[in-house]
């Protein structure tokens, strides 16, 4: 399996609003902290190291 880059979420506008709204009440520090938790939760859900590595690379990280 490789990283899914085709549209894969049902309602994009709704998803994006949910993501932004989830941090609306937070200051930058709390939002940054939450983002880290989110990355860890989703990475564990994906599980596949090759897929995670591809995402790290796509996001501009050094792998």
């Amino acid at each position: 399996m490789s990283l899914i880059l085709n549209p894969n979420i049902d309602d994009f506008d709704d998803f994006y609003k949910e993501l932004i709204d989830s941090q609306r009440h937070m200051n930058d520090a709390d939002a940054a902290q939450m983002n880290c938790k989110l990355v860890l939760l989703l990475a564990n859900h994906v599980g596949d190291r090759a897929v995670i590595r591809e995402a790290l690379e796509r996001a501009g990280g050094a792998v």
Binding site: A32, Q33, N35, C36, K37, V39, L40, L41, N44
Partner: peptide
């Protein structure tokens, strides 16, 4: 440090066994 603290915060969640591994 944010990632480290994120792991420790998640580890307190009794369902989040994966975080305790980290």
């Amino acid at each position: 440090r944010l990632y480290r603290d994120a792991v420790l915060q998640l580890a307190e969640d009794k369902d989040a066994e994966f975080a305790r591994k980290l």
